[in-house]
Simulated assay, not measured.
Amino acid sequence: MKVGAILKACRMRSGLSQEELAHRLFVNQSDISKFESDVKEPSISIFQQWMMNTQAQEVMVAFFCGIDGISIMQNITQLVAGTIVGGIFHVLGI
Rank of each mutant, 00 (worst) to 15 (best):
E36K: 06
G15N: 04
I6H: 00
V39P: 01
S17I: 08
R24C: 02
A22H: 03
G4N: 10
A9N: 01
M51L: 09
I46F: 05
G4Y: 05
S45W: 01
S37Q: 09
Q49A: 15
Q29F: 00
T54A: 05
H23N: 13
V59N: 04
F47L: 15
A22C: 07
T54L: 03
A22D: 05
A62K: 13
F47M: 15
L7T: 13
A9Y: 03
N53F: 13
S45R: 08
F63G: 08
F26Y: 04
S37K: 11
A5C: 02
S37I: 04
V59A: 03
V39R: 13
S37C: 12
W50P: 05
G66Y: 04
S33E: 06
F47C: 13
R13T: 05
E19N: 12
M52F: 08
M51S: 10
E36W: 10
M12Q: 14
M52G: 01
E20N: 14
I32K: 02
V27H: 02
N28V: 00
F26L: 11
S45Q: 12
Q57R: 13
E36I: 13
I6F: 01
Q49P: 00
N53S: 11
G4E: 10
S14R: 09
S43A: 09
E19P: 00
F35Y: 15
Q29P: 00
F64L: 15
S43Y: 06
I44Y: 05
C65A: 13
A5K: 15
Q29S: 07
V39E: 12
S45A: 11
M12F: 00
S43H: 07
A56N: 11
I44E: 09
L21Y: 02
C65G: 11
I67D: 06
L25G: 08
A9D: 01
D31Q: 14
K8C: 09
A22V: 03
I6L: 12
A56K: 02
S33Q: 08
S30H: 06
D38K: 03
A5P: 00
G4M: 10
K34H: 12
E41Y: 12
A62C: 09
A9W: 01
G4W: 03
A9M: 06
N28R: 14
F64N: 14
Q55D: 15
S14G: 08
V59Y: 02
F47K: 04
A62F: 04
V61S: 11
S45Y: 06
R11F: 08
D38N: 15
P42T: 12
I44R: 04
S30L: 10
S17Q: 08
I46T: 14
I32V: 15
F47E: 10
Q48W: 09
M52K: 08
Q55G: 10
N28S: 14
S37L: 11
K8T: 11
K8M: 11
L16G: 02
G66M: 08
W50S: 02
Q18T: 11
Q29L: 07
R11H: 07
L7K: 07
E58P: 00
I46N: 05
R13M: 09
R11T: 08
W50V: 03
S37P: 01
I32S: 04
A9G: 09
V3W: 05
S17E: 04
I6S: 01
F26P: 00
K8H: 12
